[in-house]
Every structure is written in structure tokens, then in C-alpha cells.
Nucleic acid binder design. Structure first.
Lengths: 352, 352
DNA sequence: AACGATACCGTAAACGATTTCGGAATGTTT
DNA sequence: AAACATTCCGAAATCGTTTACGGTATCGTT
């Protein structure tokens, strides 16, 4: 094992005082004389004493750690959320234990158990696609450990949530495509077990209905991996079927960008033949060609907000105050760019 | 505070045995009778007992946590590295405590101290730009806690490192631009305190020298934030000075993409008037227009490798074996795409 | 009957910090 | 001088698990 590290007892012994006094001196308690404080501080500094927060955690029954479970970290949206979480955690003097479920239910369960075993003071979760049951989160609720969901949430559980208005965002994006002249719009959807995917799909459907456009089931294709490749593959499929819509609304920007790429390679003009809109507004989406119309989600704010709510609940728990669950819905913003500016130079497609 | 959670003592009392026996039964020690094990397991299950790894950590003097410090998480390269780290950690039954220094030296120091206080069993670090001194990492070395650097490393410290061959990658990229016909090449460099930035700069310089092209200092501009905007701003600066090079080698893809965007807006043809190459090979780089030539770094492998080395060192420490520092250099791969395919339709620029 | 081997389990001391309770010493007030 | 307040500090319990050490009971062996 490692070399023994400096402890309170080491300092206490050298100064011929008790560990209690050392502990209090270091924490600047009022009932320790300035002289003693000075001596303790000096020696602690000299010996390079570092408090052992594991020991403190055991005694105080708090770890100063918050757990985070997300489906995937290599993802602009989630990494932004995490950044937001980490900033708030840092300011509140909390550490972040990060787990990636990799969209696997088993991993999510294992991670939840591991975080519980680590006695995190609170937990932030965005669910994976496979998750349909929530027993692995019950232990937190039963033990009274605050739990906040964000983005992909568990509606069945009574917890705080921070989500974006996926429905409204999708509705706006599709309405925009329609107002630009698209009379037929396909949707490259997400895996429909995800709450976000379902809400976007509903927004898509309702926008069509609202504008009197009938839904065609074959134009709703759910992605599995949500990749550039899928976007490309789907437009190829349409092309082969000789059934290309005038607009495409994709579950996220990667799929939209893949679609644009596929369309270009097939010889279609974007947006004059097929307009495209995405979701998430990746940094990159504004500089690609054509720049991509997309629904911007406040990912960083989602992270800070979720973390703030969690820390608040942790604090209230300490103070034995009542916790009431909050559900916060953040507004999206439609960023209109070249990929959907349809009317400028509309080119008729051959009728299928 | 939270509700009391089930402990070994609870189980022991109910079964009228000692906590020691319960502990051993749960860990399947051979000197506990099957009957007792059965009863303990059954009750533990019924009460939904969860081991408190904080207590275990204190007693065993190991936390089963590895710390990770990176400059920035909203970044494809780093998030991929983290993904690699987390996979290895997961398989080795370690938890990951993640800190983001935000390129701030003070935050890096605070994070290092916090991770030390949490008694992580090992630490993985990629340094921030501002870091010039390394005292905050000495405590780990002095306490014998394994420390592995990756990407942005501290050469002054005697630790294992996993890096990519930035020099060679840059050399290849610049040589490629030259072979495509660029007789003048600018470099949008990174902050030169970073080891990676310096190596890429050296690769750039040596490639020029190797091909008999003289270096022009005004064509080496160090970025500060490494953003799309900087790439754009720099080409604007060249344009205003009426001094546009035939090729641009950017420290990373975001800067390259920003440069391409800026060039387009200024009316330049890419690559026929100005060729561009980036570094990192972001996912997005292959689908933008023109697709971006870039040096691909094995980020995921870097993460898995660094984590594996760290876990090995932790294991060796336990077994009291000798640890010898390894320095592993991963090869880059030049992905040649449209943005640098110069010769096809070379257009002369007006002489400055 | 005496001894050793084996199987099974308990005692108690760690791990390092925190905190409750209280004690001693000094000063202050009546 | 007695009573009280204040200042400063220590003893010891505590958090929950692990583990070195030892103890008892049972059985087989000679």
C-alpha cells in the first residue's frame, strides 16, 4: 500500500495536544486559542497535512460527492451538461463521480449500485434507451438521497426533473419547414423508448396535423445509433424507393448532417430540393455548408440547473426542511440557417 | 441527514452473530459454514443491505476511485479519452472522479488537492495551458499514489505518460500540403505552453525546412481559446494585410473549420486558392464542405491505455512490486480529404 | 485419556476525523 | 470569599468495515 499519510494524530502527538484540538484548530473553531491555532497550522503546513475526506465522510455521514449517470459522454450535448454540473459542483465544494451507462441497462444498474455504495450525497441521472424499470433508483429514494433527472427522465418516479421542451422545439422546427414550403416532411426519429424522442415525434406529428398535412408512416424512421451514417443511409433508402420528401426533420444534428451529406452525394440540392432541420444545435452546425437549421437546447444551463436543484435538496435534507419536487422545462430556440431556407430557390422534384 | 442505512451490525444483531462473521459470510470466506452464509445472505437481501464503501475504504486504505483531471470536457478529443478511461475503470471495478480545470491553473491545483483529499487510488492528468509548475502533483508522488499523464504531459515529472506523436503528425500534414503545391503555409498554433502545441509547431517548422521553405514568423499565430472564431479572425487578418498563404495548418479542427468558413466568406476558394489541414480528425470533419484533411489521433485508445497503465501501477503497488515509468507514444494518421487536394485546380492568387 | 486437527465464530483493535460532554484554570462579579 | 462566567482543551464515543488473533467445540487418532 501507499506510504502512510500525515494524520491529525501525528500533529497532535508532536504538539502534545489531542486530536480533537488539532481538528478544531484546523477548522478555526472559536474555542481554541490563537496561539494553539498558529502552532497547529504551522506544523500542518510543514508536514503537508491533507485531511482524509474518507474518514471525515464516514464520521459525518456525507461524502461531498455527487454521482452522475449519463448514457454517453462523447456527445456535445451531454458533455455540455456535465460541464454545467461540474461548475456548480466545484463552486459548492462537491466532487463529481461520473458514470457512463453506454445505453446499457445492466451498466446503468451497476453504476447506480456502485454510486450508492460510494454513498454519494446526491445523484443526477439521464436515462439510457433501454431503461424501462427503475428499481435501481429506489434505494436512493428510500434512503432519502436526493435524485434529480435531466433530459431523459423517469416520469414514473417522483423526483425533480430538468428537461427541455422537446415537443415545442420539434413543433417549431417542423412548422418552420412547412412555412418554407415543404409539403412533405420525413422524420428521422430517435429510439422511441426515450422520453425525448417520443416528445419530438409528437411535436412533429402535431405540427403536420396543425398545418393539415397528413402523416405518412413510412417517413418516420427511428434511428438506432443516432449517427451520421444513419442519416446518410436513410436518405439513400428514400432515394432508392424514389420517394424523397421535401423536408427532413432529424432527431439530432449528427443525423441531419449525415442526411445532408447523403443528399449531396446523391445529387440533391440542399435546401432547394430537400430542406433539412436538426436538433441540438451543435457548435459545428453553424459553419457547415449549408449551415444547418437546428433547435438549440440550453445544455449547459440544464447541467447547472439540475446540479443547483440537487445541491439545494441536499442542503434542505441537512436542515431537515421539506423537499418538494420541481419539474423545470427549459425553452428551446430555433436557429434558422441555410439548410431550411427553402423558398429562395425552390426546385421541383420529379413526382415519385 | 439521510435515513440510517442498513449496516453489518444490523444483520449481526438480528442473527445473533458478530459483525465479523457477517462480513466474512458476505465475502464468502471459507471458514464460515454454509448454513450461516445462507442465513446472512438471505437477511442481507431482505434488508437490502448495501456495503458502505466509504467505511471499507477507510479500513482498507483504498478508495477504488481514480481521479481524472482534464482541461475541458466539451471537446471531442477529451471526451473520447474519458470514455476510454471509464471503460477500463468500469472493468476493473474502479469509480471515476472527474475534474475539469477549465484551463485554469488555480482550478487545477484545487482539483488536485480535492482528489488527494478523497484519497484516490490513482490519478490521470492532462495539463492545462497555464500550468508551469507541478507542486500540486508532488503530494501524489510522495505518498506513492500512481500518477499517469496523457496528451498534455509534464516532462519534468518522472511518471508514466501516454502521448501522441504530435511532431510527426504535424510534419506529415505540412509535408502533405507542400506536396500538394503549397509554397507558403501558415500555422495557427496552440498556446505554446502546451507540450502538444510546441511539438506540432516544431513539426511544422521542420517540415518547411525539410522542403526548403523558409519560415515566416508572421505566419505563425498562436490561438488563445482554440475556437472557430479564432480561425476565422486569423484569415481575416491575413486578408486585410493582403498576405494570404497558400496553405494553412491549424492546431485543431475547430480552428481549421473556422478558417475555412472565414475564407469562404472572404471569397476564397478552398482548396484551390488556400488549402487547409487540421488536427484531431473530429467526427464532423469528414462531412463538412469541403471535407477537412486532418491528423487523426487515437483518443479512445489513449484513454484506455492510460487507464490500464494506471491500474497496473496501482496493482503493482499493492503487490509491492517495482513500478517503472512507461512513456508510450501513439501514432497519428493523416486523413487526406478535399480541403487539401490542391493540385486538381490550382488558382493563382494575386501577388501580395 | 490425552492430544492434535479442523471447523466455525467472536473480540477487539484498527482506519482517521468529528463531536458531545465535560473538566480545569482563570477571570469577574457580588 | 463565594459564586459564576469564560476560555481553552481532552476523553471518549462514533461512523461502518475489515482483520489479526484467539477461543471453543467437535471429531478422530493413538
Amino acid at each position: 500500500m501507499h506510504k502512510r499519510q500525515v494524520t491529525l494524530a501525528d500533529i497532535a502527538k508532536k504538539l502534545n495536544i489531542s486530536t480533537a484540538t488539532v481538528s478544531r484548530a484546523l477548522k478555526n473553531y472559536p474555542d481554541i486559542s490563537d496561539e494553539t491555532k498558529r502552532r497547529v497550522l504551522a506544523l500542518a503546513n510543514e508536514l503537508n497535512y491533507r485531511p482524509n475526506s474518507i474518514a471525515a465522510g464516514l464520521r459525518k455521514r456525507e461524502s461531498k460527492i455527487i454521482g452522475v449517470i449519463i448514457p454517453e459522454i462523447v456527445n456535445h450535448f451531454f458533455s455540455s451538461v456535465i460541464k454545467g454540473i461540474m461548475e456548480v459542483a466545484y463552486d459548492g465544494d462537491y466532487r463529481v463521480m461520473l458514470c457512463q451507462s453506454d445505453e446499457s441497462f445492466d451498466k446503468e444498474v451497476t453504476d447506480a449500485n456502485a454510486l450508492f455504495a460510494s454513498r454519494v450525497d446526491g445523484l443526477l441521472v439521464s436515462l439510457g434507451h433501454e431503461t424501462k424499470t427503475y428499481e435501481h433508483f429506489l434505494q436512493f429514494q428510500e434512503s432519502g438521497i436526493p435524485l434529480v433527472f435531466f433530459d431523459k427522465v423517469a416520469d414514473q418516479l417522483k423526483t425533480s426533473q430538468v428537461i427541455v421542451d422537446d415537443y415545442e422545439g420539434a413543433f417549431q422546427a417542423v412548422s418552420h419547414l412547412i412555412s418554407e414550403g415543404c409539403s412533405s416532411i420525413a422524420h428521422f426519429a430517435g429510439p422511441l423508448v426515450a422520453s425525448t424522442s417520443r416528445k419530438r415525434l409528437n411535436g412533429y406529428k402535431d405540427a403536420l396535423a396543425h398545418h393539415g398535412i397528413s402523416l405518412r408512416e413510412e417517413w418516420v424512421i427511428p434511428c438506432e445509433d443516432i449517427t451520421l451514417e444513419e442519416g446518410s443511409a436513410f436518405v439513400n433508402r428514400f432515394h432508392k424507393a424514389n420517394n424523397m420528401p421535401e423536408g427532413i426533420f432529424a432527431i439530432t444534428d449528427s443525423v441531419a448532417i449525415g442526411a445532408i451529406d447523403g443528399l449531396k452525394k446523391l445529387g440533391y440540392q440542399v435546401p432547394s430540393q430537400v430542406a433539412v432541420a436538426g436538433f441540438s444545435d451543435w457548435k459545428i452546425s453553424s459553419v457547415i455548408n449549408p449551415s444547418l437549421t437546428s433547435v438549440s437546447q440550453p445544455s449547459f444551463e440544464m447541467g447547472t440547473l439540475a446540479a443547483k436543484i440537487l445541491l439545494e435538496e441536499i442542503q434542505k435534507l441537512k436542515d431537515e426542511e421539506e423537499i418538494e419536487e420541481q419539474v423545470i422545462t427549459l425553452k428551446t430556440q430555433l436557429k434558422i440557417r441555410e439548410s431550411s431556407l427553402f423558398t429562395t430557390s425552390r426546385v421541383e422534384l420529379p413526382t415519385p
